[in-house]
Computed example of a mutant assay.
Amino acid sequence: MENGDQNASSRPTARPRKPRAPNAPPKAHRHQGASLPARNSDFVYQDLRREIISMRLTPGTAILEKNLAQRYGVSRTPVREAIVRLAKDRLIDVVAKSGTFVAPIPLAMVREALVARRALEAATVREATEKASESQFMEIRAIIQRQRENAQAGDEAAFHRADDDFHAAIAAAGRLAGIWDMIQQIRIQIERYRRLTLPQPGRMLKVVGEHEAVLEAMVRRDADEAVAKMAYHLNNLQLDIAVFRDMWPDYFLLDPAVDSDLLAE
């Protein structure tokens, strides 16, 4: 046997990733600064944005320019530029005389984004039901199976990527890939909220079942049913807002003008 084969056979078998405990926010992310590519304000912006949206940086986390400049190996100027962009995205709050912090999740924006997303995904599902080929249905089914395996392994990051792939594949099958790009732009706050829901017992497998229901209606070429199943899937996020707001009250921002129902609970 070659040395390479001996080394491969002696490697330990990969173990399933231990799932995050129910009601626990995502673990803090350890950033490997030495492996970062070229430094510039756009990279700093994209990297911080990714960490905030994934909830690796949770609402209320202090953002220190000096530390970020050291971490990315840049001056404070590109860091400040990135912070300004993130503040415009409502992902960072710059508070005079207090500091800079990851912003809370504005529930009003979550609700508005859910309404917009339901409308856009209704269009992609309807078109995909009518236009998708059998091979495209097979691809979507394979994505759902991959998502099921991710859920069973407790791999939230891979589950999330497969979830994106599912919705993107439907848009592509409907020849409306550009609409998925639009959805990506409006769902920033939805994603932060959604990341909090994944560790709930059975949550990921429940999502898989909802995706399967959408696909089965599409395969039958029943566009109305497919749209209804997708709406049900997306509506479940909104129904649970009060529950997760109560679990992590410091993570959310309520607007008295539009969130009166939540304030009264």
Rank of each mutant, 00 (worst) to 15 (best):
L198E: 04
R50Y: 09
S10L: 12
D240N: 08
A171E: 03
P256D: 07
A122W: 03
L253S: 13
R39A: 15
S260F: 08
M1V: 10
E134G: 11
A142S: 13
R192P: 00
F244A: 00
Q70V: 13
R220C: 12
P59N: 06
R76W: 05
K131T: 09
K88T: 11
Q46P: 00
P16T: 11
I190V: 01
F252H: 02
W180K: 13
L237M: 15
I140R: 01
G154V: 03
R71Y: 04
R85V: 00
A116D: 04
I179C: 01
F159C: 00
A257W: 03
V102M: 01
D246V: 03
P199W: 05
N150Q: 02
N236M: 10
E210G: 11
V227L: 05
A213L: 14
D181N: 12
Q32V: 07
T61R: 12
L114V: 02
E65R: 09
M247L: 15
P249L: 14
R245A: 02
L36Y: 08
A151N: 03
Q145C: 03
L254K: 07
L107T: 05
R161Y: 02
R39L: 06
E210S: 13
L239V: 08
H29F: 14
T124K: 08
R90A: 12
D163S: 15
R56A: 12
D164Y: 05
P201H: 09
E130K: 08
D240E: 15
S35E: 14
I105G: 00
M182T: 14
R221H: 14
A226W: 01
E121L: 10
R71G: 11
V74H: 02
R187W: 00
E225N: 12
T197K: 05
S54N: 12
K88V: 07
V44F: 04
P26C: 06
A162F: 14
F137L: 13
D250G: 08
L91N: 07
I140L: 02
N3K: 09
M55L: 12
R175K: 15
A34S: 15
D5G: 06
N235P: 01
E65Y: 15
E156G: 02
H31S: 00
L86I: 08
I190H: 04
N40A: 08
A38L: 07
E112P: 00
D222I: 14
P249V: 09
I53F: 04
P19T: 04
K66H: 10
A142E: 07
R80G: 05
S260L: 12
E139L: 11
E212S: 11
S98G: 02
K27H: 11
D255S: 06
T61K: 12
V219M: 14
R187F: 07
F159A: 01
L36N: 07
E134Q: 13
Y72A: 03
L262F: 04
R117F: 06
I179H: 08
P12H: 14
Q145T: 10
V102R: 00
E2N: 08
V74N: 04
S9T: 11
D259S: 12
T124F: 05
H160Q: 11
S135Y: 05
D93F: 06
K66F: 06
T61E: 15
A123H: 13
E139Q: 11
V84I: 14
E81A: 11
A172P: 04
L64C: 09
I179E: 02
L237Q: 13
L68R: 06
L253C: 05
I140C: 00
T124D: 04
G209Y: 08
A228Y: 01
R30F: 15
L68E: 06
Q184T: 04
